[in-house]
Amino acid sequence: MSAPLTASNVRITAGDRTLLSIDRLTVENGTLVGVLGPNGAGKTTLLRASLGLRPVQAGRIELLGADITRCGPAERARLRCRVGYVPQALVGHGLLPLTLREVVAIGCTGRAGLFRPLVAADWRSVDAWLERFGLTPYRDELYAHLSGGEQRRALLAAALVGNPELLLLDEPAAHLDLAAREQIVTLLSELHVERGLTTVLVCHELEVLPAACERVVLLAEGRIIADGLPATVLSGERVAALYGPGLRAVHAGGRHAVVPAVLAEAAPP
C-alpha cells in the first residue's frame, strides 16, 4: 500500500514570509509520526495543507493516493472523509445549540453522503466512541458547556467515528491538565496498537508523544531540520538550541520530556 501522506517540494507563503518549505516528507502506512517544533514552525500549516484547507503555492501533497492540491471540491471531500482530523481548538459559543453527541456525529456526516440522513448504525457508532472516551454521561449536554478536556476527547471521538485510514491530530492535549493529557496519550497508544492507524501527531510538548511513536519530524521556520527516532532527533544539543540552553530532553521507557537542566542532572540515571 502506498504511503497515506506524501509532501513533495511544498511551498506555502503568507506575504513575504515562508510558512512551509518541505522538499520531501513521507508518512508510511501504520506509523505514528510526531511533528514537533517551536511556535510558527509550520506544524499546523502542514496539517491544514495536507487536508487541502490551506492553498499551497508550489509542490504536491498526496493524500491517500491523490494529489489534494489539484482535486476538485467533490474529490477533495471524498478524500477528507477517509481522514480523521482534530484541530487545535474549537470551543463553541454560548448560542451554539449542538449537543456533544451531535458534534461527534459530524465525524461521519461527510462519509454518509448528501441526501442521506445518518442511520441508526451511524448513531450506534457515535455512542460507542462516546462510551470508549468516557463521555456518555455528557452526551446530551451542550458542547459549549463542556470542559476543555471533554471537548478535546469529543473531537478525537469525532475524528475516529468515521473509521478513518489516517489520523491528523493538531495538539490534541493542548491546555489540558496532566491527568487529562495522560488520558489522551494512553488513548492514542491504545488506538495505535489496536488498529495500526497511521497517525500524524502535531504537538509542542514531548510528553504528549506516546511510546508507540517511533519517528519524530522536527520543524523550524517552515523547514524540516531533523527526522528520525525521537531520542536521536530530540538530542540535548538540539533541544537546547531550539528551546534554550537551560533545558534538557529526557527519554525513558519510550516516553520523552523536556525538563530544566538542573532537574535532569539531579535525576538518578
Binding site: 477528507r80 459530524i106 461527510g110
Partner: peptide
C-alpha cells in the same frame, strides 16, 4: 456548518 465551516470541510462535508 453550525459548528464550524472549516471543521465541517475537514470532515468531508460539501
Amino acid at each position: 456548518l453550525l459548528f464550524s465551516r472549516e471543521y465541517a470541510a475537514a470532515a468531508g462535508v460539501r
